[in-house]
Design a protein around this nucleic acid. Structure first.
Lengths: 345, 345
DNA sequence: TTGTAAGCGTTATCAC
DNA sequence: GTGATAACGCTTACAA
């Protein structure tokens, strides 16, 4: 006959104490995992047995209250429907869960970051990871008294991790240049996201080194979505005085949209149009032809951010030494090729 | 001079009470949102002002402890990387957040459902939504004393919501049959998921009504992933004695993989091969040609599940009246067409 | 109508 | 080593 947890009320340290014939405090000492808790071996065993027999499970809510720490962190991302952010989150989650922290996920698409932050504070989260959301532009006190780590976003106020965004742009430019392209366009998000700006900057800088500049018509702004990428590419294809032979899109979603627009318009990729994306989300290898793109280590970005956050939570004093941006690499696949020898439109 | 929250310790009801010149309990009465709290209008206003001035924010952890409810629910899904589940989750999240609940997301791919459940209990979640995960097969007591709602999974023990899975299969079969296909194959997941089994059943049943049966070679089992769909389709294409002219895949991921395999093998879609998926994830419209599929209302599924769960949390007594399965509908797009007139091979 | 006081389940500081 | 005991911030009878 195993002891039944009668679902009515759950087992507490008091129950365990009674069962083991010790005081409640002793149970807490034994089960609390406090390293410097000196308890006799015999008592310890009795307590552990009793706990196991009764199916004791510590109440984290109560622990949180007294310790003033919830062992929960919040994560705010622009939109989960972009697989890139999902990967970042998955990296965070892995590290956090292993360390005994729970993760409260917030999609800034449903609800404004400010409101998410409010809710997270109410729940006493210990810290927050913010990904590409302009933390600086939040209500000044929205982050007061909270440990914050930023992903892909610079700040002198908080620590963070980032990928090598200018490097990503350069890599894309280099690849296209190496293939022999000279008529090159860029599709970048309209939203003011630091990473995107830097990708653009690196890209343009590298082009300029080879004496190539982007006519303003060939610098399209769009929301970072598939649909917007499609629209941008349609506009590019419709240009009267010749069209580009290659396009770099600031993220894969845009590139996927651009690819779709080309195929829909009967423009062969990569024969008539080369396309380079950025992020290397799983989808990049689902489409045909597979997307040439700059791979960004999303999961690793998330994992590092989480590690930084947890370390700061454990020892708040320790100063943060800024990390080098994570390297990116070019993944050459099916959407890039040399420009056609004689195609002036 | 606005009052500063000195980051050191946050504002409590005591602070507000002192500021307003009332007792702490009164503050709780006013701010606790208790409907039957009778407080004089004047005091109420004083308290509310004080709270606002000080920037008071209720501590949900403390509230949880005393009320025995955490206002947090857990959600366990097979894998977030399948956009279908992400949609379900987003539906849940919307409803939950609006009602003041937080959501703890668990991806069963990282960690076993059993362990997730353990962690969720420790955090005193009030209830759990389990999506397509064989709740019946979990350790019997893993769900004891918890409100549980199931998505896409039958059970007499717990309430749930489901989509019309057999209907989805029938719809797919009907469409293919109507187009004139007779040589039809099926790719279904190897894992024993109820919804998938039902989709298959509905599909096969409808085929049989027209006197068509699936040769066992044409019934391929695969993990519900793009890669597996690709492999399954390759196997189908390699069949010696003629290949099917159409394939129904039990979910979109598989269909996307199948499409990719066809394009890679130079098999024209839909001219030489018709493909039907199921779920209607966003990706279905990203590929070229766009995927014909059976649309399943994922977000609505999630939203309903959450509503059922919340209702049960508010009034645990109320019996649950089983809901009708949510209807699905066919989305005819670019991957289906009449079979080629004279193609025996 | 408002204040007093008793917990909720845990941790942590003391005496014993 | 172990056991009282006092918090943690809040809700909720019950008393005033």
């Amino acid at each position: 006959m195993t002891p039944r947890s009668h679902a009515s009320r759950s087992i507490t340290t008091h129950d365990v104490a009674a069962h083991a014939g010790v005081s409640q405090a002793t149970v807490s000492l034994v089960l609390g995992g406090n390293p410097r808790a000196r308890v006799a071996q015999a008592t310890r065993e009795r307590v552990v047995r009793a706990a196991r027999d009764l199916g004791y499970r510590p109440n984290i809510v109560a622990r949180s209250l007294v310790r003033g720490r919830s062992y929960t962190i919040g994560v705010v991302v622009p939109e989960l429907s972009n697989p890139f952010f999902l990967d970042v989150v998955s990296g965070i989650q892995k590290v956090a869960v292993e360390a005994g922290y729970a993760v409260l996920l917030c999609d800034a698409r449903d609800t404004s970051p400010g409101r998410h932050l409010e809710a997270l504070r109410g729940r006493q989260v210990d810290g927050i990871v913010i990904d590409a959301l302009g933390a600086e532009s939040l209500p000044a006190d929205a982050l007061d008294g909270l440990e914050v780590v930023l992903v892909d976003e610079p700040s002198e106020r908080w620590p963070g991790v980032a990928s090598d965004a200018p490097g990503a742009g350069r890599l894309a430019a280099e690849h296209l240049l190496g293939l022999g392209h000279r008529r090159i366009a860029f599709v970048g998000p309209a939203t003011d996201v630091h990473t995107f700006r830097m990708r653009e900057r690196g890209f343009v800088a590298r082009l300029r080194e080879d004496g190539i500049s982007l006519p303003s018509d060939w610098l399209r702004r769009a929301q970072p979505s598939i649909a917007a990428g499609q629209a941008a590419m349609r506009a590019l294809l419709a240009m009267k005085d010749g069209r580009p032979t290659a396009v770099f899109c600031a993220n894969d979603l845009l590139a996927l949209g651009a690819l779709k627009a080309c195929l829909a318009a009967g423009v062969r990729v990569p024969a008539e149009m080369s396309l380079v994306g950025c992020d290397d989300i799983e989808l990049a290898r689902v489409v045909t032809p597979e997307l040439t793109t700059v791979a960004v280590p999303a999961r690793e970005l998330g994992a590092r951010a989480a590690r930084i956050l947890l370390r700061r939570l454990e020892k708040p004093s320790e100063p943060h030494k800024p990390q080098k941006p994570l390297p990116v690499r070019l993944a050459v696949r099916g959407t890039t090729a040399r420009p056609q020898p004689e195609t002036e439109r």
